[in-house]
Design a protein around this nucleic acid. Sequence first.
DNA 1: GTCTATATTGCGATAGAC
DNA 2: GTCTATCGCAATATAGAC
Lengths: 202, 202
Amino acid sequence: MEKDTETKLIETAMVLFAQKGFAGVSIRELAQAANVNSALISYHFGGKEGLYRAVMEEQFSPIGQLLKKYENMVQLSPRERLEQYAKTIVMIHQQRPFLAQCFHIELANPSECCESVIKKYISQMFQFIHDTLAEGVARGDFKLNLKLEYATISLAGIMNFFFITKSIFQQFQPCFEQFDEEYATQAIDIFLNGISRRGEHE
Amino acid sequence: MEKDTETKLIETAMVLFAQKGFAGVSIRELAQAANVNSALISYHFGGKEGLYRAVMEEQFSPIGQLLKKYENMVQLSPRERLEQYAKTIVMIHQQRPFLAQCFHIELANPSECCESVIKKYISQMFQFIHDTLAEGVARGDFKLNLKLEYATISLAGIMNFFFITKSIFQQFQPCFEQFDEEYATQAIDIFLNGISRRGEHE
DNA sequence: GTCTATATTGCGATAGAC
DNA sequence: GTCTATCGCAATATAGAC
């Protein structure tokens, strides 16, 4: 069965916007790639910006729920929760191969139209990591002198930079391919090991 | 003394391109912001693309030399060399407040015109970190089972993501301000601690 | 819901006076 | 080296037929 116009447009636009950014793609290009008349973008989404917003919401909105699953896992230790977080990140990126690029595009050139979408995503991430780290410090699992805000960014960086730059680094190290999980496992291990109190003189 | 036209254009374009990307800025906007006639962009740089290239080259070209300073510091241990690397990164970003955004823009939407510039930068970074890690593993300082390629990205991520996202995170955590060095110190500490062989059962 | 045709605006580049 | 004026084109959006 043929996909309907809106779906075709969103799926095509996802790729093109991710590659070239909002200003870098024209509605003609979008319409041609989706094999659809360009007037239909205005008809279905009210214009190019509406299509862009639709793409971004599709990318980011389901993530909040996924993250919430782990937020309230009180039975897990902070360490375990962060390990789960790492696995979740991998899963999210595998399910949405263009998420990293979309995220990236919006980080680089925040568009007013998606400010709320992207900010919500970032603040959820930030809060989750931050609070989990805080709990770990309070329990004595993590180093007592950790600057939580900075450690939060460190973890976010270690987990996200990989996906953001994957396509670039592959050009230097072709062996990269599909080892997302392997990366995430080692990365979270380095991080947890690095903030662990074990070995610290107290 | 009044700056000359080329300087004014490059400095203005640096900000605007960093904020909106290549396609997101028009030559009229650039010219107006630089308080210069728009025809002069073509005259001095051969067109908008030439100005963009000039901006990017200005941002990235001096970095290679800075990095080389530390590459050949054979008298330093791998650990010390990476600590120096972290300090260098901070210094570079402080000297060039828009470098992270320019880097970011090119990562998000690689332009053919700067492919060589950005690739050279990335591959230098990658090589330096990778080789230093390899030496550390060989000496027995770092974990023996480290996947070097992944660890390289982890370090690059931990060091660069902060600068890329700084302006965004500041909106959530206003206390961020000017503590780049503090961030870098803790980040490299977490990383080195995380890959250290100390405590490993061999 | 989809198409053609077009209105309108803004783009990048340049010719030519100064 | 800088300016004005303008060319040619591509952009988004929409009116109206089907």
